[in-house]
Each structure stands twice: as structure tokens, then as C-alpha cells.
Design a protein around this nucleic acid. Structure first.
Length: 651
RNA sequence: GCCGGUCUAGCUCAGCUGGUAGAGCGCCUGAUUUGUAAUCAGGAUGUCGGGGGUUCGAGUCCCUCGACCGGCACCA
């Protein structure tokens, strides 16, 4: 057989007979490498060591030190080992799929009995046994029919379905360790003993629909995490504990920001502290939008069904609307209204008042629009996914030609807002045309191209979400991440060709004829509720000074300083700073601790020394050290610090 | 909405196989005048998520409804 030439990462070339395996190459290089090898890359394609190599290639051996490859293999094989453990414990359980995910893996099972927490312990134990057996991993390529017959004979209906789904031109790879078999494209470790037995943990059980389809049976999914060693696992678990402390639901209680209760699921009771954040944020957004050329409007909450029928919501969105029936006096039929789930139809009503000229476009119409949506109960999550919320919504009425420039202007606007609020980074997702859509392909081409080029022009990279656009137009989504890594869409920017048509919006063009405007739906924070949730988690409750609900506490060390404390508070308040006095009969240690836990950014302590010298002892949240400042100094400094970023820029 | 779990004082939680509720923190009262992350002593906490059932007796067992938590599905 002809020789092939493999180029190693150090540039050296070695030649081997065609069909040589990665394992053989590793053994040829050195005995220790052969032992440490877990997989290889052939022309950059990650592959297992048993794979024959038939052509010249760039070649690299991987060991556990290669983090990306090692983690992929460990997580992948741990998933298989878990599935095997489950089937060894409960032979009647049907296996399905088990991919690698961030930090670990999951595997979906079909089992009549639910898995309990105790079961997880048992499975983990069995997994360690399997790892200790050090069974070699083998794979074979089978004929499709043989694989189908095999799974039919073994009563594995999900595998039968999976084999059927593999495209004709792809090989059916059968995979074993010990006597246990699975369908898998690989790559895999050399033997099960290469999985670290002390660096994985099964985390939780959850329901998951077979193939993600809610019409299909619900399977049981076991999630696990897996790492290269015990320390990495421990670090991950510590990170999760830390993240839990940043949870906005916990901080919301600890900082007395808001609460929620059974009588109003998915709706927020804002307490004074939380509402201060909300209104401060709203004031900021109002200034920014005014500066950005928006006009602000306000529209009704309860709107007759007629409008929702006309807008199309009654058809497409009814399940998510709160319907309000009213017995109007003398009426034969009850009037049927809905709480508005969106502001767009109402904004078109304002646009439609009087004639609009092309000179009025682009018309940027903003509303802090209070919306209600009947979200499925399982979707609710703290204040991040709620049924009652307020959007910083706006609709830009413009011409097709203006889509690109309006998009560009908007992305710059959004990025600047996010920066002011402490988010330097955010993801942009671009969703293009779905299968079911309104409007011609030419119009879609134009709109998609406009969104893309505008995004690129502003210097942001986007991820493509193919086919995820709304039926009425493509969209950009601006995504932020919460404390435990879950993504939340906050900002959105969507092109809409349909609503202006349905609600008969038009303007008089240069040619004197009527034309249809395009609508751009856009929201920056998304909803105040969600954004504040993200803000709390991002800052772990330590909000920037200008947003902090309680900015300064002035604490007396002895009660003889009480009068001076009141003076200090008055001086701060006179400059618009949110300050309060703490003249309770408690030790300064106690007060410092309590306000630190409450995330108050600045504590000014006053004892008799400060009274005498008319200064204060300044303690910043998180600092161990204190400093001393004169009263005038600190009031000025804090007044500057309390200035919202947009006003600070103007000053 | 679906699967699983949870629901006991304001908060965090204990309460064994059924015998009418506990701790710490917080709160209230008093003492203490305190120098930068919890001063001491005393006191009160409650329809054990709602409703129904089994039982002589239910926080504990069963049914049902609700909310919450974690996923899944959904997210114009």
C-alpha cells in the first residue's frame, strides 16, 4: 500500500502506510505519548485514534492537556457512560440522544418511572464502576438495514428513528464500550478509563420532549457536568454557588426592591427602592430618546377586539392575550376587549390621525408602553419573564430606503445606552425569513440586506438565526446574559411590512400619491422588568452610583452626633443625592454591616471627631479602608458621581 | 402548557415510622453611647400554600387546586 505523509504540529513530516491509525502514529512517536493520547486531529478535524488515515494530512495527537478536545471527549463519553449505567441499572429504559453542552452533557431517556435524586447517586456510582472497567471503545460502520434490524430486535424505537434520519450519504457508526452499544458519530476516547472518575457530577433531572416537539412524548433528561479533573469540577460548582448569590430574585428581596405574590403571578410589586431604579432608568431613557429624535406618546391599555382583529393579533396571538369582557349598559352583547400585549397597533392609530407627508418620515414614535401578555405558566421567571411589563418601545415609520440608515442610527443608539448601563458586550442575532411569511421575496431581500449591512457598518458581528424572523419581517435581537449564563433577549429591532398594510397607514409622497410606510419595531431595554433583572445580576446588586436606590447612608457613631448627621443628610439631599440618616442606637459595626449587605454604595460615618471638624469618614461598599473628607468636598464629589452618564456628557 | 421537585414565623431552615410546632437572623422592649461587616438581656412570632378526604387524632398519609423552582415547549 502507498505511503502517506503526516505533517506534525512542529512541522516535521513522517510517512506511514496508508490506513495507519492515530494510535499507531502515537505509539511510533513515543511510548508515553501513546499512553497519554486521547484523540487526534486530521487536517483540523477532531477524530478518534482508531480512525484509519488514508491520505496526506496535517496531524496532531491530543492529550488531556488540550482543553477543548479533552473536554469534548470527556463530556461526550461521560454521556454514553451515563446511558450505559442507566441501562445496566434498569434494562427496560430506552435510550435516545445525549449531546455535549456547555460545561457538560445530557442524555434523554424513556422510562415509565421518574428518576429521583437517589437514582442519580446510584447512577453516578455505577458510572464510576464502568469507568474503572476501562473497557476499550470500538466503532464499526454498518449498513443501514443491519443497524435498523439491530435496533428493532433490541426494542430501541428511538434509535430506529434516529438511524432513519441519518442522511443517505452519511455512514452509520456503531459504537461500543464493553457489551454496551450506541449509535454515535464520535469521536471517542480510547477506553472508558480515560474519563476522570472524580470530575463529573449529575446535576438535575428534567422533562424534555422527544426531538423538541411538544406533540411528541416527554422523555426524562439527566443533566451532568464533566471536567478534566476534580479541581475544575470544584471551581465550576463554586461558580454556581457564587452565581446563586447574584440571582435577582434573591437580591430583590435582600435589597427590598420588589416582591411578587400568588394573587398576581408574573407581575411585579415594586417597592420604593426598586421603583427608584425603575424611574431613574426611565428618566434616563426618556432623555436619550428625546435626544435621539423620538416623540413620546401614550396609548390605551384596554382596547376593543376590533383593533386586534384588524392588526391580526386576534388570529395569531389570542392565546397570549388577557381578554376583558364588559357588560356595557343596555348592550345586548358583552363588549370584548383585550389588554394590549403590544403597542404597535395603537401607534399606527396615532400615525393615522391626519395626513402624513414624506417630509414627516422617518417618524420615531416612542412609548413607555405597559403591556400584558398571558405567558405560559412554565415560562415565568422572576422579573425576567413576566405577564405584566413595560417596554421602552418605539416604532419608526419610514420608507424602504430609510431602513438601513435608521437601523444604523438605532444600533449606535442601543450600544451607547448599553455602555452607559455597564454592558460593554452583547450578542447580536439576526433572524431572517421564515418559511411562512408575508411579503414578496424582493422586499425580503431588500430588508435583510439593509439590516445586515447596517449591522456590519456599526462594527458588530451577528449570529445568524436562520428562519427565525417574524412572519412580517426580519429582525435583529440584542442579547444579554444573566448570572448563570442564560441568554435573555433585551433589545430588538424588527422590520414590518405587514402592519402598515393591515391598518392602512400611508403618507403622501413627493409624487403626490399615497404610499405605504415601513414600520421598524424597536426596543432597547426590552422591558424595564427584564432589564432591571439583568442589571441587578450583572452588577451583583452593586448598581452604578447614579442608579443605586439608596446612594448614601449617614451613620451616627454616638448619639451626640445625631444633629450633625441630619445636617449632612440635608446637604446631600439638597444636591439631589438619595441619602438617609441612620441614628439608631446601634454600634457602628452593626450599621456598616447592615448597609453593606443592603448594597449601599457609600456610608458616611460621623462621630464626635467629625462633628468637631465638620468632615465625614467615607466608606465605599466593598472597601476595607475608610477615608476622611470635608463635608463640602464629599457633597460635591458625590453630586458629580450621581449625575447620570448622559447628563455628565453634556456638562 | 408538559415533566420533576418544593411550599412550616418577615428571611433561612429543623420537625423520626401520624399524638394539636421549633432554631438562628430579623422584629418589639429594656440596658448599653458605641470608631467601620452582627453589644447584651427579655418578649411576641404561625389558619404548617388553599380546599377536601382517611383517622379517635394530620405539618406528617391520600385527592385536588394554586404558586414557586429547574428543565422542555413557547417567546409578535
Amino acid at each position: 500500500m502507498a505511503d502517506i505523509s503526516l505533517t506534525l504540529p512542529d512541522g516535521n513530516q513522517r510517512s506511514y502506510p496508508a490506513g495507519v491509525t492515530g494510535a499507531e502514529v502515537a505509539a511510533d512517536i513515543s511510548k508515553s505519548l501513546a499512553k497519554a493520547a486521547i484523540s487526534c486531529s486530521i487536517d483540523g478535524r477532531h477524530s478518534d485514534l482508531s480512525q484509519p488515515i488514508n491520505a496526506d494530512a496535517a496531524f496532531a495527537i491530543h492529550t488531556i492537556k488540550d482543553e477543548a478536545q479533552a473536554l469534548e471527549l470527556i463530556r461526550h463519553d461521560t454521556a454514553h457512560i451515563m446511558a450505559r449505567a442507566v441501562q445496566e441499572l434498569w434494562p427496560d429504559v430506552k435510550v435516545t440522544i445525549g449531546p455535549v453542552i456547555e460545561h457538560g452533557f445530557y442524555y434523554d431517556f424513556d422510562r415509565a418511572e421518574p428518576f429521583s435524586v437517589e437514582d442519580l447517586d446510584q447512577i453516578e456510582k455505577k458510572m464510576r464502576e464502568i469507568i474503572n472497567r476501562r473497557d476499550p471503545v470500538t466503532t464499526e460502520i454498518w449498513e443501514r438495514d443491519r443497524a435498523l434490524k439491530h435496533y428493532e430486535a433490541n426494542n430501541e424505537p428511538y434509535k430506529v428513528e434516529l438511524v432513519g434520519m441519518i442522511p443517505e450519504d452519511q455512514a452509520i457508526r456503531m459504537y461500543w464500550h464493553g457489551h454496551w452499544q450506541d449509535l454515535c458519530r464520535g469521536p471517542h476516547l480510547v477506553h472508558t478509563g480515560q474519563v476522570p472518575a472524580d470530575a463529573f457530577k449529575l446535576m438535575k433531572v428534567a422533562g424534555a420532549y422527544w426531538r423538541g416537539d411538544s406533540a411528541r412524548p416527554m422523555l426524562q433528561r439527566i443533566y451532568g457536568v464533566a471536567f478534566r479533573n476534580k479541581d475544575e469540577l470544584k471551581a465550576h460548582l463554586t461558580m454556581l454557588e457564587e452565581a446563586e448569590k447574584r440571582d435577582h430574585r434573591r437580591l430583590g428581596r435582600e435589597m427590598d426592591l420588589f416582591h411578587m405574590q400568588e394573587e398576581a403571578p408574573g407581575q411585579v410589586f415594586w417597592h420604593p427602592n426598586g421603583w427608584t431604579i425603575y424611574t431613574t432608568l426611565q428618566d434616563y431613557m426618556r432623555r436619550r430618546q428625546t435626544e435621539g429624535g423620538y416623540v413620546e406618546v401614550n396609548t390605551p391599555q384596554v382596547v376593543d377586539r376590533k383593533l386586534w382583529v384588524a392588526s391580526g393579533h386576534w388570529d395569531k396571538y389570542q392565546e397570549n392575550m388577557f381578554i376583558v369582557e364588559v357588560d356595557e349598559e343596555h348592550a345586548r352583547e358583552k363588549a370584548i376587549n383585550a389588554l394590549k400585549p403590544m403597542n404597535c397597533p395603537c401607534h399606527v392609530q396615532i400615525f393615522n390621525q391626519g395626513l402624513k407627508s414624506y417630509r414627516d418620515l422617518p417618524l420615531r414614535m416612542a412609548e413607555f408602553g405597559s403591556c400584558n401578555r398571558y405567558e405560559p405558566s412554565g415560562a415565568l421567571h422572576g422579573i425576567m419573564r413576566v405577564r405584566g411589563f413595560t417596554q421602552d418601545d418605539a416604532h419608526i415609520f419610514c420608507t424602504e430606503d430609510q431602513i438601513e440608515s435608521e437601523t444604523r442610527i438605532y444600533i449606535d443608539f442601543l450600544a451607547s445606552v448599553y455602555r452607559d448601563l455597564g454592558f460593554e458586550k452583547f450578542k447580536v442575532k439576526f433572524s431572517d425569513r421564515p418559511d411562512k411569511r408575508a411579503g414578496s421575496d424582493e422586499v425580503w431581500d431588500k430588508a435583510e440586506a439593509a439590516l445586515k449591512s447596517a449591522t456590519i457598518a456599526t462594527g458588530y458581528e451577528f449570529e445568524l438565526n436562520p428562519g427565525e424572523g417574524a412572519f412580517y419581517g426580519p429582525k435583529l435581537e440584542f442579547v444579554l446574559t444573566d448570572a448563570i449564563g442564560r441568554d435573555w433577549q433585551c433589545g430588538t429591532h424588527q422590520v414590518d411590512f405587514v402592519l402598515p398594510e393591515r391598518l392602512d397607514a400611508n403618507y403622501i409622497g413627493e409624487d403626490g400619491a399615497k404610499h405605504r410606510p415601513v414600520m421598524l419595531h424597536r426596543a432597547t431595554l426590552g422591558s424595564f422588568e427584564r432589564f432591571i433583572g439583568i442589571l441587578i445580576e450583572e452588577h451583583a446588586g452593586r448598581l452604578p452610583f447614579w442608579l443605586a436606590p439608596r446612594q448614601v447612608v449617614v451613620a451616627a457613631i454616638v448619639s451626640d452626633a445625631d444633629d450633625y448627621v441630619r445636617d449632612v443628610v440635608a446637604a446631600l439631599k439638597a444636591r439631589g443625592i438619595r441619602a438617609e440618616a441612620d441614628i439608631r442606637n446601634e454600634k457602628i459595626n452593626y450599621k456598616v454591616r447592615e448597609h453593606s449587605v443592603g448594597k449601599v454604595p457609600v456610608i458616611l460615618a460621623c462621630g464626635m471627631r467629625e462633628v468637631g471638624e465638620r468632615n465625614v469618614s467615607v466608606r465605599r461598599l466593598g472597601d476595607k479602608q475608610t477615608s476622611t473628607a470635608s463635608l463640602d468636598e464629599i457633597v460635591n464629589a458625590l453630586a458629580i458621581e450621581a449625575t447620570p452618564p448622559d447628563l455628565a456628557r453634556r456638562a
